[in-house]
Simulated scan of single mutants.
Amino acid sequence: MKQKHRILTIALASGLAAAPALAEGPLTLEGGALSSASKMGTVADPVVEAPPMAPVPTMVDWTGGYAGVALGVGRASWDDGSSSDVLGNLFAGYMFDMGDYVIGADLNYAPASVFGDFSTASEELRAAWGLVGRAGVKLGAEGRTLASVGVGPSWVRTRDAGGDGNTAVGVTAGVGVDYMIDDNWMLRSGLSYSRFGSVGANDISVNSVAAHVGAAFRF
Rank of each mutant, 00 (worst) to 15 (best):
G116V: 11
A105V: 12
S83Q: 12
D80I: 15
N108L: 15
W78Y: 12
N108G: 12
D85L: 11
V114K: 06
F115V: 11
Y109F: 15
M59G: 14
G99Q: 10
D117Y: 12
S113F: 09
D79F: 12
Y109W: 14
G68Q: 07
G68L: 05
Y109M: 05
G116R: 01
D79C: 03
A105M: 05
Y66C: 00
V86T: 15
S84D: 13
G99M: 10
G88R: 14
D97A: 04
A76K: 03
Y94T: 08
V69N: 01
M98S: 01
L87H: 07
M98H: 01
L107S: 00
D85E: 11
G104T: 08
S84K: 11
A105F: 02
D117S: 15
A105Q: 03
M95A: 04
G116S: 11
V60K: 01
A105C: 02
Y101A: 12
G74F: 05
D106H: 05
F115R: 08
V69K: 04
P111T: 08
M98V: 01
Y101I: 01
V102R: 00
A92K: 02
F115C: 06
V73I: 14
L71S: 06
Y94L: 14
L107P: 04
R75I: 09
F96A: 00
M98N: 03
D97Q: 07
A92V: 15
A67Q: 08
S84I: 06
M95D: 03
G64V: 06
G68R: 06
N108S: 15
M59Y: 13
A110C: 05
S82M: 10
S83N: 15
A70T: 14
A70P: 05
D61K: 10
F96S: 06
V60W: 00
M59Q: 15
M59E: 14
L71I: 11
V114P: 04
V60Y: 00
A110P: 00
M95K: 02
D100T: 08
L90H: 06
G81E: 10
A105G: 12
V114G: 02
F115G: 04
A92R: 04
G72E: 07
Y66I: 00
A92Y: 03
G81N: 02
M98L: 15
A112F: 11
S113P: 03
S113R: 09
L87K: 04
D117C: 11
A76W: 11
D106W: 05
D100F: 01
F118G: 09
F96H: 02
G99Y: 12
A112E: 12
D117Q: 12
A105K: 03
D85Y: 09
G99N: 10
L71Q: 07
L87T: 09
Y109R: 02
G104C: 05
W78T: 02
V102W: 03
A112I: 02
Y101R: 10
L71V: 10
S77I: 08
G74C: 07
S82D: 14
A76T: 10
G81S: 08
N89K: 15
Y94I: 12
A105T: 05
T63H: 00
G65W: 13
I103S: 10
